[in-house]
Amino acid sequence: MTLVPYQCSCDPRTVNKSKYLHKTIDGNSIAFKNYEPLDDLNGYILMDTVPDSTNYIKINSIDGRDRYYFITSRERQNAGILKVNLHEDVLMTFRTEIKKLDVVVDRAGSTTKVQSDIPDSRPTKQYSLTSEYTFSNLYDDFYFGDPTGVNRFDYIAILSGRGTI
């Protein structure tokens, strides 16, 4: 069984961490009390195999596949022995199968391939945009466009006098 210690530099929620894993040293020795359960291992390993910068471990060919683990705790024992607790990174271990899952996505970080018109209470900046439209200025058209017709009269006079009674 081969142990590959890494320094993982990405969010643990990242499914495929391959490009964020930096190998710290090639390991060749590992000893656990047991391998059950697979997702939470604890055991003793040689300190030389896991430099201090190691926070992530790949164990090759355990239960039929390579599995990836977060080092959740490490405690120095005697004679260069390190006691570690490991929690399986199921996203990385099963990354290939996960990518094939058919899912309904609730939220996604894309504006082009999501239904962005669905109302969303999350921090979308919603603001108002006011557009202004005008009718043609018929008043002026009438008034200035008919200098010889009835509109040549600018004023209205209401008068009282002889002949109006």
């Binding site: 499914v15 996960i98 990518k99 094939k100 899952l101 058919d102 899912v103 309904v104 996505v105 609730d106 939220r107 996604a108 970080g109 894309s110 504006t111 391939k113 999501v114 239904q115 962005s116 669905i118 109302p119 969303d120 999350r122 921090p123 979308t124």
Partner: peptide, 15 residues
């Protein structure tokens, strides 16, 4: 927020 939280999708597809 787009990167960290995402916006509403409701789409059905493989990951």
């Amino acid at each position: 927020w787009l990167v960290l939280g995402g916006i509403r999708s409701e789409l059905d597809a493989t990951l």
